[in-house]
C-alpha cells in the first residue's frame, strides 16, 4: 500500500441539528480504488462532497497529499479532485462542449476526441447533442469531462446506479482501466457488493455517519470481512 493520497480525520458535518457525518476517519492510498460502502443514510455521498468541499465540514480535516484542504482554494481543490455523480448533468449544445466545460473555465487545453477515446467513446460523438446519447454514454462523457482537468484523484458517487446492466459493466471496466493506465486514485461509492468485488482495491464501511472499518478487498471478501458483509446485507 502506497502513501495516502487522501486522508480524512475526525470529519464531521451537521445541518442544523442533524449530524450527517460524525467523526469519519479514512485513508485512500495513492493509485488505488477505495470503495465506500454502507447502508443508505450512512453519509457516503456526504463524505465525497466533503472531500472536494462541495460542502463545508463542521469539524475535522481532509488532507490531500498530506496538506489540509482547508488551506487550498476550493476551486483549485475541485480541479485536482474530480467528481462523477449518479446522474450525468452535461452542459452545452454538443458532447465536445460538455467534455470541455471545466477545462475551458480553467483555461486548460484539452483534446475532446482524445478524452472521448479514453472513456471508450467514438470521437464521432463529439458533435452530437449530449441529450441524444444513452445514459451510459452520457455517464462516460461525464467521466471524460472530469478527466479533462487532469485530476489527481476521482470521486465517483454511485456512478452506475442509473445505468442498465451492460452500461454498468462498461463503466466498471472504464474505472479499472483508468486506474491502471493513469494510476488515478479513486473513491467509489457503491451499494452493490458484487460491484465492489469487481473493482475495488480497498473497502471502507460507513454507518450512521461514522467510519466503521477498512479492509483490503481480499480481507473484506474473506472470512475477515464476513461480519461487515452480513451487516451491509442485513441493512440493504
Amino acid at each position: 500500500m502506497g502513501s495516502l493520497k487522501i486522508e480524512v480525520s475526525g470529519l464531521g458535518y451537521a445541518v442544523g441539528e442533524a449530524e450527517i457525518l460524525k467523526a469519519v476517519y479514512a485513508g485512500m492510498p495513492e493509485g488505488e480504488i477505495t470503495a465506500v460502502v454502507g447502508p443508505s443514510g450512512a453519509g457516503k455521498s456526504t463524505l465525497l462532497r466533503a472531500i472536494n468541499r462541495l460542502i463545508e465540514p463542521s469539524s475535522g480535516e481532509v488532507y490531500l497529499d498530506g496538506e489540509p484542504t482547508r488551506s487550498l482554494d476550493p476551486l483549485e481543490l475541485r480541479r485536482r479532485v474530480g467528481m462523477v455523480f449518479q446522474i450525468p448533468a452535461l452542459f452545452g449544445g454538443s458532447v465536445e462542449e460538455a467534455v470541455l466545460y471545466g477545462a475551458r473555465l480553467s483555461g486548460k487545453d484539452a483534446d475532446p476526441r482524445r478524452l472521448l477515446g479514453m472513456v471508450g467513446l467514438d470521437a464521432s460523438l463529439a458533435e452530437r447533442e449530449p441529450g441524444s446519447l444513452s445514459v451510459g454514454q452520457q455517464q462516460r462523457v461525464s467521466v471524460a469531462r472530469a478527466l479533462a482537468l487532469e485530476p489527481e484523484a476521482l470521486l465517483l458517487d454511485e456512478p452506475t446506479s442509473a445505468l442498465d446492466e451492460a452500461a454498468r459493466r462498461h463503466v466498471e471496466e472504464l474505472v479499472r482501466d483508468l486506474n491502471a493506465r493513469l494510476g488515478l486514485t479513486m473513491v467509489f461509492v457503491s451499494h452493490d457488493l458484487s460491484q465492489v468485488e469487481r473493482i475495488a482495491d480497498r473497502v471502507m464501511l460507513m454507518a450512521e455517519g461514522k467510519s466503521v472499518g477498512e479492509w483490503s478487498r481480499e480481507d473484506f471478501f474473506s472470512a475477515a470481512g464476513e461480519r461487515a458483509r452480513r451487516f451491509i446485507a442485513g441493512r440493504l
Partner: peptide, 20 residues
C-alpha cells in the same frame, strides 16, 4: 441543484455555475 453542483465540482465559480 444537480447541474449547479456538477458545475461547481468542475471548478466553476458560483457565478459561472449559476450563469444559465
Amino acid at each position: 441543484r444537480l447541474k449547479v453542483e456538477a458545475a461547481l465540482a468542475l471548478g466553476a465559480t458560483s457565478r459561472q455555475a449559476v450563469a444559465p
